[in-house]
Amino acid sequence: MVESVSPSDAEEKSTRGQAEFVEALARGLAVLETFDEVHSEMSLTDVARRAGLRPATARRSLHTLEALGYVRHVNKRYVLAARVLTLGASYLRASHVDEALMPELRRLVAEFGDASSVAVLDGPNILYVAHCSEQRSSRPVAAIGATYPGYATSMGRLLLSRMPQEAIDMYLAQLKPVKLTEHTETDIGRLRQILSEVRQLGYSVVVDQLDYGVTALAVPIKDQSGRVVAAINSSGYSGKLTAERLVDERLAELQLSAARITQVFTRYPALLHSIRPAG
């Protein structure tokens, strides 16, 4: 039996959640997330600005993270320490990503070559949770933990299209798309139309939207109730692979992999819980 929640119960849970929210922990995580490929070394001022914190607050967070071994202070600049890797490694082990997702990605790459990935929505972006590739050509680094703007990717468009309409409207209202290539679609009206088409088709194809040379096809991964929780794609080099050929040759196998992963969730519920959209 599903427990009903009265308005007073919901209000109590919300109040308790606010009371138990640890701001210091949130600030520490925000500090860690300020580091990326462009900002690999930063001064205290840089960290504070990117995290949206006062310098004194950022200093306390950095001092704590340094004491715990997650950052290093070298020549008046801060860098991430290797111990940060343990955070991601803990997730991979606990959720059994290798056992649950990689077999299908390896199968697709063995069948078609190129690359295959699984991603979830992380705000307006997609977040890679699994990736397999034999590609050697120059392209954006697609690896576990990488994030890319949803509007410019096959998996992003697929996942965005499955959100409630009011959520799509809010996303598009706040979106400030950037031309990543000359082909990147940045017109909000056209993006709205694309998301509608993707929802109807049940798959998404992009060509040179994220970067030149990248053509990708994505389909949804669902839980046992039919709710979309992630996306899986197959991608290749645009110079050798048209969107039509990608769909003709790979759509059925990609859908098969998605269905098999749905069945795998029964053996790895922690993985499902970790990627299922909140709310």
Rank of each mutant, 00 (worst) to 15 (best):
V2F: 08
E3Y: 08
V5T: 11
V5E: 09
S8C: 00
E11Q: 12
E12H: 07
T15M: 11
Q18N: 08
Q18S: 11
A19I: 10
F21E: 08
E23R: 12
A24G: 00
L25C: 05
L25D: 12
L25E: 13
A26H: 13
A30V: 05
A30N: 06
V31N: 04
T34M: 06
H39R: 12
S40R: 10
S43Y: 03
A48Y: 04
L53M: 14
L53V: 07
A58P: 14
H63A: 13
E66A: 15
V71N: 09
R72L: 01
V74W: 03
K76Q: 11
K76V: 00
L80K: 08
L80H: 09
L80S: 10
V84E: 08
L85C: 02
T86Q: 14
L87A: 12
G88T: 08
A89V: 00
S90D: 13
R93H: 12
A94D: 15
S95R: 08
E99D: 13
A100D: 06
A100G: 05
E104Y: 12
L105G: 10
R107Q: 11
L108R: 10
A110Q: 13
E111R: 15
A115C: 03
S116P: 10
V118R: 06
L121N: 05
L121Q: 03
G123M: 01
N125A: 09
N125I: 00
L127M: 10
Y128Q: 04
Y128S: 02
H131R: 12
E134D: 10
S138Y: 13
S138G: 04
G145Y: 07
G145D: 05
Y148I: 01
P149A: 01
L159P: 14
L160V: 09
L160D: 11
D169G: 02
L172Q: 11
A173K: 00
L175H: 08
K176D: 13
K176W: 00
K179P: 01
E182W: 03
E182G: 01
E185A: 04
T186E: 08
G189C: 03
G189R: 02
G189P: 02
R190F: 02
R190T: 13
R192E: 10
Q193C: 02
Q193T: 12
L195C: 07
G202F: 09
G202W: 08
Y203E: 00
S204L: 05
S204V: 04
G213A: 04
V219A: 15
P220E: 13
I221A: 03
G226I: 01
G226T: 00
R227M: 07
R227S: 10
V229C: 06
A230H: 05
N233C: 01
N233Y: 02
S234M: 06
S235T: 05
G236I: 04
G236V: 04
K240M: 10
T242S: 15
A243R: 07
E244L: 07
D248S: 06
R250C: 08
L251R: 13
Q255R: 15
A258E: 00
A258P: 00
I261E: 07
S274Q: 05
S274T: 04
G279H: 13
